[in-house]
């Protein structure tokens, strides 16, 4: 049983006069729960994801983030990952010359605290790749280099599968995916979700919620959660868009 507690989180863009983007976020995500955070462009929902992961572009000015009572904000980026946090990124970064297989094994070794036994590791990777309908040749390519949008998202979920986090944050995981890829990626997420982890799903659009059903839906606007409810809130956003928050953006696509 794990719990991620976000209390009164304020975040600025790093730098002398960086704008404040998060203006007091409160949220608790526990094992077995799936929370969807929905909001229009620029509301700060991706900043929330990056701040929890420790992206250097953002500075926390107030508030706390605790994972099972431990101070996440005091940890380095890699310590947060080893503590059990995982961020599936909207824009995964290319790392030329580093093969996927080397990257995965290095990451798994770091997170698990010891190198996985080679024979079981190969099977583990092959099974996970097969389930995500990824070709084996994928393992020999450089990390995210020349990947299509769909390949990048599959690769993120492959990592999530192998690193077995306590709490996973998925940032716009559905964006740019066609129907087939969305199904494959969502099924991958659901398999990990079904192991009992806590999930924070960040999305502008309701589309992915048809594949990954949330227990809680939160509307994010101007740097904070302005409304919370169950799955019915997503249905309402699907119909109404973000108009009642003063933004002319739809939530269905």
């Amino acid at each position: 049983m794990s719990t991620l507690e976000i209390r009164d989180l304020h975040v600025r863009v790093a730098g002398d006069d960086g704008a404040e983007i998060l203006k007091g976020v409160d949220l608790t995500v526990s094992s077995g729960q799936t929370h969807a955070i929905m909001g229009p462009n620029g509301s700060g929902k991706s900043t929330l994801a990056y701040s929890i992961a420790g992206h250097p572009k953002y500075t926390v000015t107030q508030g706390s983030v605790l994972l099972d009572g431990a101070d996440v904000l005091a940890m380095t980026v890699d310590e947060r990952a080893r503590a059990g946090l995982f961020l599936a990124m909207q824009y995964p970064v290319e790392v030329p010359g580093v093969s996927v297989s080397n990257f995965l094994r290095t990451a798994a070794t770091a997170v698990r605290g010891e190198a996985p036994k080679l024979r079981t590791w190969v099977r583990e990777v092959n099974d996970a790749m097969g389930a995500l309908e990824m070709d084996r040749s994928f393992a020999e390519r450089s990390v995210n280099e020349g990947f299509s949008g769909g390949e990048k998202k599959r690769h993120e979920i492959l990592q999530m599968t192998l690193l077995q986090p306590k709490i996973a944050i998925l940032d716009e995981t559905a964006s740019g995916l066609d129907v087939d890829a969305l199904r494959v990626v969502s099924e991958g997420v659901n398999r990990v979700r079904n192991t009992g982890i806590g999930t924070l799903l960040i999305t502008h659009y309701t589309r992915i919620l048809r594949y990954i059903q949330p227990d809680f839906v939160h509307v994010f606007f101007d740097g904070r959660i302005v409304e919370s409810g169950g799955a019915e809130l997503a249905a309402r956003l699907e119909d109404e868009g973000y108009a009642r928050f003063g933004v002319n953006e739809t939530a269905s696509a």
Partner: peptide, 8 residues
């Protein structure tokens, strides 16, 4: 950041 975010 990307590599560290995977625990490395």
């Amino acid at each position: 950041f990307y590599l560290q975010a995977r625990g490395i």
